[in-house]
């Protein structure tokens, strides 16, 4: 093993981790505010990818506009799911929402198969996004660079939004305690819907990035990344935004290094490794790296 090889693999892990982080943030945010493990979150990634495909195919829109369209599409779908499925269940035991999210996930996947067909589709992006940028020993594609930069920018924007703006503070108050937040004049419904909108928009944008990077999308593409984002969120501590980001990067790097540093014969076990890590984290650090004890909520 040589140094360039190691750098190569670290870059691979960073890119993969950025996409996991984007999905994991939304996952964590939604959990933080409604205590819902939303298994339909990965399917929003699929919707984002297909929205991106449609935006590219219907008009030759510039990439930033496509990103905007995908963000909006993800947010709208997230809000619709919240309004139609999860709001009527608010106040029910946690497991009700969890099972409902599985149902939503399966409905979305089957709808996608019926409407879009199961055949994988090609996802083409403008040529300039595929150009190579040199950084000394490694060269990176523009799209890969964009994935990393976009992940970091969105994370910083979101963190400052939640920490410093009035709406962000209201969201955190809602996450803390519905009743007290309501007494403070906060519209709980609006806050929860906002969390779904932001979380889903991020997952959708991750889907766009996923499609742009790998060039192929299909109705079930979101399943595995969705599950892995769940693992990332657990590693970081479910409910914590910075934890989700950290978990995403740790998972991306660990997965790539697992394949890259161990004998090739073990490459096939990468998913087993990821979910084995999940069990380990749950045993050793049940609240994740940056998570708080979330069971004490009023």
């Amino acid at each position: 093993m040589t140094l360039p090889y190691l750098i190569d693999q670290l870059v691979n892990g960073l890119i993969l981790g950025s996409m996991y982080a984007l999905v994991a943030i939304g996952f964590s945010m939604i959990y933080g505010i409604v205590r819902l493990i939303n298994f339909a979150h990965g399917d929003i990634l699929t919707i984002g990818a297909f929205a991106g495909l449609a935006a590219f195919a219907s008009a030759d829109l510039p990439f930033p506009v496509v990103i905007l369209i995908v963000l909006v599409a993800g947010a709208v779908v997230g809000m619709v799911i919240e309004r139609t499925t999860f709001r009527p269940m608010r106040g029910s035991p946690q497991v009700t929402g969890f099972i409902a999210s599985l149902a939503v996930s399966i409905i979305l996947e089957n709808l996608a198969i019926m409407i879009l067909s199961a055949q994988p589709r090609t996802f083409r992006i403008p040529a300039y996004l595929n150009a190579l940028v040199d950084f000394g020993p490694v060269s990176i594609r523009v799209i890969d660079l964009m994935i990393v930069v976009l992940a970091i920018v969105l994370v910083i924007a979101l963190t400052s939004f939640v920490r410093f703006t009035k709406v962000g503070i209201a969201m955190r108050a809602t996450a803390e305690n519905y009743d007290v937040a309501r007494l403070m004049g906060i519209n709980i419904n609006r806050m929860i819907m906002l969390a779904f909108a932001i979380g889903s928009a991020l997952a959708a944008v991750a889907g766009l990035m996923w499609g742009s990077k790998y060039g192929q999308i299909s109705p079930l593409m979101g399943v595995l990344p969705g599950l892995k984002a769940f693992v990332a969120a657990v590693i970081g501590g479910v409910g914590s935004i910075s934890g989700a980001v950290l978990g995403g990067y740790i998972l991306g790097l660990a997965e790539v290094l697992f394949v890259g540093l161990l004998p090739p014969a073990l490459s096939g076990y990468r998913n087993a490794f990821v979910f084995g890590a999940l069990i380990l984290v749950l045993l050793v650090l049940p609240n994740g790296l940056l998570g708080r004890n979330t069971e004490t909520r009023a």
Binding site: P4, D8, Y214, L224, V259
Partner: peptide, 14 residues
């Protein structure tokens, strides 16, 4: 189900 082959590609390259 794999979609990310970056780790395998890097190994192939090296």
């Amino acid at each position: 189900s794999d979609q990310d082959f970056s780790a395998l590609v890097s190994r192939l390259k090296s």
